[in-house]
Amino acid sequence: MATHSENQYFVPHGSIYPSILSAGLLSMAAGFVFSVATDRGGDSLAYLEGPGKWMMYFGLAVVLFMMFKWLGTVVTESVTGKYKNWEDKSFRWGMIVFIASEVAFFAAFFGALFYMRVLSVPDLAGFDPNFTPYKDFLGTWPSQGPGGVVLGETFEPNPAFKPMHWMGLPLINTVLLLTSGATITWAHWGLIKNNRKQLIIGMALTVALGIAFLICQGLEYHHAYTEMGLTLGSGAYGATFFMLTGFHGFHVTIGTLMLIVILLRCMKGHFTPEHHFGFEGVAWYWHFVDVVWLGLFIFVYML
């Protein structure tokens, strides 16, 4: 259905991308399950690991290719003027609700952190000494937990364990992300004033800061694993630390990729001062990632 006037909403033609994308996700998910397969009975399913990995990579390739095609179609439709104010408003609402759902996702992991820190770790230390297997456990945070036998496997806290201090790399990362929030706003002002130079420099700086953040986080993780005895398996602290910062880092990676695409689109002149939802949507996402980091910095690193 083509658009004939301002009063008509753009309904795109049929598209094969969503259904193939879903098939790719199926292959990815099933492949992942095969690659980590274990059996309750203890029978080895290790022979599934190889084929599972291939299924997973194949699925991932399909997903990435379909996203590339799908978003490419959206860009084409945008630059050929299919989207007017009415469609623009839909995209804005859509992005707001999507970011809200992301907030809820992070809330689950923050919830786990608060629950363990405030409830389960002190509770484990607070049992009557006559009736607890965790006699010497003090329950102070940061904690790897008391250790013990669970599901037939013994978990021993690592005596070399150290928590991540907020000074140093985390503080540098905070500065990097906050600065990137400022540079993207500066770029946005450039876009509104139709100052292309300011726009492109601002975007390039933002991308560079995003990449710098990821490099610092890589160094931090390396440091944690090799020198601090801090791993995903380091009890309550390790699990919440790596899940929260890991999912955040994953979101920064996605955000940086989107910023790179937007930078390229800025250089191609896709955006006008009046009409640039693509830019704004990514900027909102970037600010969201920024705010989550502040939560992490306060609750994971500082307190």
Partner: peptide, 21 residues
């Protein structure tokens, strides 16, 4: 997702030995 990492990647979200519940 926490369940998945508890199952395969050694986290202790739901495991008292690691301070989870």
């Amino acid at each position: 997702t926490m369940l998945l990492t508890d199952r395969h990647f050694g986290t202790h979200f739901f495991d008292a030995a690691g301070g989870g519940d």
